[in-house]
Design a protein around this nucleic acid. Structure first.
Length: 318
DNA sequence: TCCCAGGGGCCAA
DNA sequence: TTGGCCCATGGG
């Protein structure tokens, strides 16, 4: 059963740079095939679907969603999945003013947005996936997390073979919680093994509905609940809220701090408190888009602002 | 070889 | 409350 949906990108969400999605931050179980992002999903009903997401620019920009149903889906399930994909790929995210106005009057942002002009903020389908994704990004160069997430999915995800290719789902808390620590460690995650297992165990033990937390209105409540999980500190909570909840949060880490010091404070170190205030006041509702630009391929575009950037970006997928 | 990386937990003051 | 150390692993 194959069905294709063509969803127009609203003009308020343009510019819409799909190529950015194809080439940046593509972590397993997402894989790139040609001009499409492909991923295996397991629906709550237990049915498997392979989803292909592509893009068409003419006659008008549209996201192309192809469902390869390994078991037949009903109409509600199709709708649910298409909605999820639209949410993941930020089809309804008005960035026109950001790219056409905000970025044009700031020399740094103007330089930063050259290469990924029209990039939107991608979201993860599951909060558990976001949390693990950020945990494996702790205290390593980003380049390494592609390997770690791939190994985790291949070892603990469910798989289906279609044609000659095998696809994986993202591991569930159930599977991770009962996995031996040594097998998690074998995924090259180092000492983060106990955080990964610990989060899964907490979810199972307290019967936590992490995705249900998306209905919580108060971001502070969400942040506090996330930080109760082992291995989840301010950085992990903030970034997980950005990529798992689509909330206007931004994370302070070695990389983003250094970007702010370099481009806005003459390389001087500034307290986190002042950085947060600076970002909030200067960019307001656009702060998370700004932080995406400032922390993506920074070493590449920094020279065009006349500055060098010490840290190597791991934004581009290998 | 050594150092450091897109943090967090823990413990001593 | 805060500062310093430790934690795996891989790349420069």
């Amino acid at each position: 059963m194959n069905k294709t949906f063509q969803i127009p990108i609203p003009s308020s969400s343009q510019p819409y740079n799909f190529n950015y999605f194809l080439t940046h931050y593509v972590f397993y179980p997402w894989v790139v095939e040609g001009k499409e992002l492909v991923r295996l999903f397991k629906l709550p009903s237990g049915k498997f679907v392979l989803v292909r997401v592509g893009y068409r620019h003419n006659p008008q920009p549209a996201l192309l969603i192809a469902l390869n149903e390994l078991e037949r889906l009903n109409a509600d399930e199709q709708l649910w999945l298409v909605d999820l994909i639209l949410w993941i790929f930020a089809v309804d995210e008005p960035v026109k003013e950001f790219y056409e106005v905000i970025c044009q009057k700031d020399a740094v942002l103007k330089a930063a947005c050259q290469e990924i002009y029209g990039a939107h903020l991608r979201t993860d389908p599951y909060v558990f996936e976001s949390i693990l994704g950020v945990i494996v990004a702790q205290n390593v160069q980003f380049q390494r997390i592609y390997t770690m997430t791939e190994l985790l999915c291949k070892r603990f995800g469910e798989k289906r073979t279609i044609g000659e290719k095998t696809y994986y789902t993202f591991p569930t808390p159930q599977v991770i919680a009962k996995a031996p620590l040594s097998e998690i460690r074998a995924c090259k995650v180092g000492y983060r093994d106990k955080y990964i297992k610990g989060v899964a165990e907490e979810v199972m033990k307290d019967n936590l509905d992490l995705d249900g937390l998306r209905n919580e209105k108060d971001p502070q409540t969400i942040r506090e609940k996330l930080m109760e999980l082992p291995g989840v500190g301010p950085y992990t909570a903030d970034l997980a809220m950005a990529i798992g909840f689509r909330l206007p949060m931004f994370h302070l880490d070695l990389y983003s701090r250094e970007a702010l010091y370099t481009f806005y404070f003459h390389g001087k170190k500034i307290s986190d408190e002042r950085l947060r205030e600076f970002v909030d006041v200067r960019w307001g509702k656009w702060k998370h888009h700004v932080m995406l630009l400032l922390t993506t391929n920074t070493d590449t575009w920094a020279p065009s602002t006349g500055k060098k950037f010490r840290l190597k970006s791991g934004a581009k997928s290998p």
